[in-house]
Design a protein around this nucleic acid. Sequence first.
DNA 1: AGAGGCTGATGATTTAATTTCACAGAAGTA
DNA 2: TACTTCTGTGAAATTAAATCATCAGCCTCT
Lengths: 213, 213
Amino acid sequence: MIKILVVDDDPDLRENLVEVLGDNDFSPFAAENGKAALETLARETFDLVLLDSVMPGMGGMETLPQIKRQYPKIKIIMMTAFSTVHGAVEAMRGGADDYLTKPFKINDLLVAVRRCLEEAKFVACGDLLNSDDMFKCLANITRRKTLMLLHKESKLRFMDITRKLEIDDHTKVNFHLKTLKDADLLEQDGRKYYQLSPKGKKIVSCLSSMASS
Amino acid sequence: MIKILVVDDDPDLRENLVEVLGDNDFSPFAAENGKAALETLARETFDLVLLDSVMPGMGGMETLPQIKRQYPKIKIIMMTAFSTVHGAVEAMRGGADDYLTKPFKINDLLVAVRRCLEEAKFVACGDLLNSDDMFKCLANITRRKTLMLLHKESKLRFMDITRKLEIDDHTKVNFHLKTLKDADLLEQDGRKYYQLSPKGKKIVSCLSSMASS
DNA sequence: AGAGGCTGATGATTTAATTTCACAGAAGTA
DNA sequence: TACTTCTGTGAAATTAAATCATCAGCCTCT
């Protein structure tokens, strides 16, 4: 069951959100400000936090970075009544995963929540201590080059990859492609074209953002 | 010299921005829409793109993901006259590094530009195709655990690491520590305490953000 | 000074990753 | 059809990494 923490000082809205989320097969909890939210987060694990940006006591903009730092895997959706572009940009820069302007339609909320959670599934690729295959794959320069290549060109056939990598022995390439496939970083479509798997895409974008940021 | 590409359909603003950027020791180029921008990017390498979101022909919101996909290292600042929260959020989700609402003060622009470029400096840890040592290091779970450990505890002595990793053979740990030191992910201070090197810190933070987003 | 644990180096051995090679069925083409 | 290129498999050889056994200097404590 996916656990969501609703943080808002308005009791009506809070109860309303809890009810709606409950109706939609989530497991909702509530907190009335940032401080209470952090305490709740310390006690239980959550998947997502709906965070109001302006609250008496500890506000959302202040709470956001703390949550992200302590629980980097938790997705955060900011909500705000006083919507400004600057505020939205700051929130996104601060680590929010989405941003909703009050009043919003329930449906918009659910869409945002589901989108965030969908993205969160890729967490699987993380867990540094668990994804051995992935790191083993990345340890080889030919395989890293292959990932980069497929990132740029999106779809290639076996021999195209071999040629682009300027490797004369195609069986060597075959070996690395198989390794990449086994690690689920690469996949083949019906016509045998190689392409990055969702996991592969995720990794490449992580790595290039690592290279660039 | 840092190269910046200004993409805007308004000739006055374009010229103005080019002049200002030139006065501030940047090397500015201009393009009048997304298509022209992509052509320019294909010819020369840039560090940053200032991208107007609404332009005749190919707009910025359309160009943004293409630039990010083809040149993931290039920083992008979106500019828009019709500023909406939704637009800003979309831009940031789409890969923009910052977002400015027209009209903006020149100073705000320069601040945003410098901030983006500052973030870009971490490049060092990247270059996927070059840092073989680093990836080889990360391929081993003991070494990843060691990095995580030192990330949490910041400074530890040899035998502390050995114990915390629950490895009974200290020579094994010795081997991995040496490997990490050789790859410049780890360093020792005067009292032989092990700690993450700057490069090591960068990598750990990259990896945990990867695990969390 | 001497006992005993801590820290680290070295080289041999074992294990794993990678490359090479020989071969073969499918698919495309002249 | 006959020829060529594409896409693979599997086994053997090579290379690289991890583990193990051993030794030695350096602390600290008595």
